[in-house]
Design a binder for these strands. Structure first.
Lengths: 140, 140
DNA sequence: CGGAATCCTATCGGATACTG
DNA sequence: CAGTATCCGATAGGATTCCG
């Protein structure tokens, strides 16, 4: 076996897999949800990637993982991010159930953004993305 | 602390973090590469996400993680994927150094696609994406 | 068989200006 | 302060047709 990354379950002969191999790698695809023949929003991989979609999304998540922040604080943390796109990102993250918004009325208004419990689920994934990205850069 | 996901290093008071908090979570952001103030291709998180970008990309990767495949075999594995997009995905993955291509001349021609060593680095990430996506669905 | 070329549409991301 | 409204250019993705 040229690569040690495949699970030991795959140590059967796969030389002729093109036509005859019909099994699934249970480590990679543990459930039926991962066996889709086309893109589908219910696929767990897509659920996670959907939340991270967008050029600025992971940066906003990183900021919120350092603590709750107001709209203005987020804007200052990422100065190159325009109001329009910041609003887009926050709306998207709220739709995904990753971020909550609390408005405090007064003069001036304040709005606090914070990760939900679901949002915190993304933390280990972000760490794994960083780790994998580092290793990919090295081997190029 | 409402959430146990933050590293213990963050157990200092972050109630007033909006203005005074200037530290970084070293578990989440272990190096300077993760401290960018704007999107940048060298950021490890973006390197990894760039490779996975595209509606069909993870599905093609899944197929290749079950073994090397020809163009036609990939096309049959994912019948709803058009030639144009399949070519786009494979070109993209080759540019990222994730997939290699070997052409066998003859009648008919054959072309074999296989993951590179860099490509196999993505396997644990895909597993983590699946795991996270599952947990995100449950908490919705 | 394994694509490339062309065309078309939808969504994304950015700039700018304005508002409660 | 915390957005909304409008416009616009750049991609992404899909359908179809053609080629070595």
């Amino acid at each position: 076996m040229a690569f040690s990354h495949k699970s030991s379950q795959d140590d059967r002969n796969v030389t002729n897999q093109t036509e005859s191999y019909r099994g699934w790698d249970m480590t990679l695809v543990p459930g039926m949800d991962g066996r889709t023949l086309e893109p589908h929003h219910d696929c767990p991989v897509e659920v996670a990637l959907e939340a991270l979609k967008g050029r600025w999304t992971t940066l906003v998540l990183r900021e919120l993982m350092h603590g709750d922040k107001s709209y203005g604080a987020l804007s200052q943390s990422l100065p190159k991010l325009s109001d329009k796109v910041l609003t887009d990102v926050l709306t998207h993250l709220r739709k995904c159930g990753v971020v909550s918004r609390t408005v405090f009325r007064g003069f001036p208004n304040r709005t606090l953004y914070r990760l939900t419990a679901t949002g915190w689920e993304i933390r280990p994934l972000l760490i794994e993305l960083y780790r994998t990205g580092l290793r990919m850069r090295k081997s190029c």
